[in-house]
Design a binder for these strands. Sequence first.
DNA 1: TCGCATTTGTGCGTATGTATT
DNA 2: AAATACATACGCACAAATGCG
Lengths: 240, 240
Amino acid sequence: MTKNDARGGVALWRRIADEIRLDIIGGKVSSGEQLPTEAALAQRFAANRHTVRRAFAVLAEEGVVRAEQGRGTFVNSARRLSYRIGRRTRFSEGLAGQVQDMHGELLSTRLENANASVARGLGLRPGTRVTRLERLSHADGRPLSRGTSWFPYQRFPDIAAVFGRTGSLTQAFAELGITDYSRASTRISARYGTPDEIRDIGLVPGSVMLVTEIVDVDADDRPIQYALTRFPADRLELVV
Amino acid sequence: MTKNDARGGVALWRRIADEIRLDIIGGKVSSGEQLPTEAALAQRFAANRHTVRRAFAVLAEEGVVRAEQGRGTFVNSARRLSYRIGRRTRFSEGLAGQVQDMHGELLSTRLENANASVARGLGLRPGTRVTRLERLSHADGRPLSRGTSWFPYQRFPDIAAVFGRTGSLTQAFAELGITDYSRASTRISARYGTPDEIRDIGLVPGSVMLVTEIVDVDADDRPIQYALTRFPADRLELVV
DNA sequence: TCGCATTTGTGCGTATGTATT
DNA sequence: AAATACATACGCACAAATGCG
């Protein structure tokens, strides 16, 4: 039981790819710019050139870089999106100006009993009936977030139907008599993507996800939504 | 170039360990509770029992679980800390009540020229002289965060010395005439830990880090600090 | 005390993936 | 492209500790 080899279960080519992708997304190297030679990167990462090439192959597959024989490897694109969160920002507003097209997709709805976390978030007793919505949002055609929302069933028995018809939470609430609501709390954490998320959002295993856990309240401070939203951390950052 | 084997460069034992750790930290299984048998988990993850055992070995090494021969494997403990961030919260306040002892350590100081990010954060021209501080904070004896701060040199030429003496940023600013300051912006992202962070904080390679990028301003809204702080995501969440 | 089922701990052989030279 | 070394993952078998009747 060697227990802890230096690699920690993450292949070297994977870590090299992650680090280079991070430099690109973080803006350390700009779009169109030429990356260091494979030999130079091999030295920097204390790896073999073969291993760097494997990392480049993955990044090229993702469309992040482009290799040109005899010239070098170049950055193709893409800064990270900034999603603004605040007491009164609506989901679609948070990315205003950064994406052309933005739309959500309702994956499924379910009536279930609140577990401890959901009950705490909505201020209900565990076991109370709640409506659960599974959502997937797209930005410019690419999946951007995977969200799960819970609503108190007694207060909003029809929310699944209304949301499915309107496609907008703000509008759905409006039809149900909630003209105004705001964010009561936001918790932010990070972890690896689960197999489900990787499938839905179209990521590679081991991708890092940003997770927001939010509670929305109506004008009387009564909780109306508890939601968990997961974003791929290499495509988006949160701005408070 | 097979490009994308199913593993994506992350070992199966590593992902099993991450998922179980997540269940524990997230509160899905409680302290002291017995985990499913190795055989059951092997089935659930479609893995060999040896592979599950390897994941358990890592978690046991971290102190998260404890195996007892002939009985089973049990959860040792540990919920995640919640670090509250807001316009006026100071670093030490953010964790009030959650840790017994909290102290910071000044790793190094350096005088350098602002790069693009630092210059943007502090509202200076790139190349302007700035003081850079490298910090490591501990909570209850364990390293909890790794921070890098930049300050405009012209305005605070002695901040390194003063901070080194007082150990508190609030107090250092007070001695330098800043009686009040607040948070102008907070950006939050997530990524893998770098080799340096892994060494300083004492993590295993491939650990997920939460990264906050903040700008503090004085009472006249002039930037006085730009800082990057990195937290291990499995030990801490952020609360807005 | 004994037998028995359950569960963790250990050993070995094999195939494949990773990384270097 | 090929040879090599090591890590990962699987399958099978058996030992050791525990709890129970």
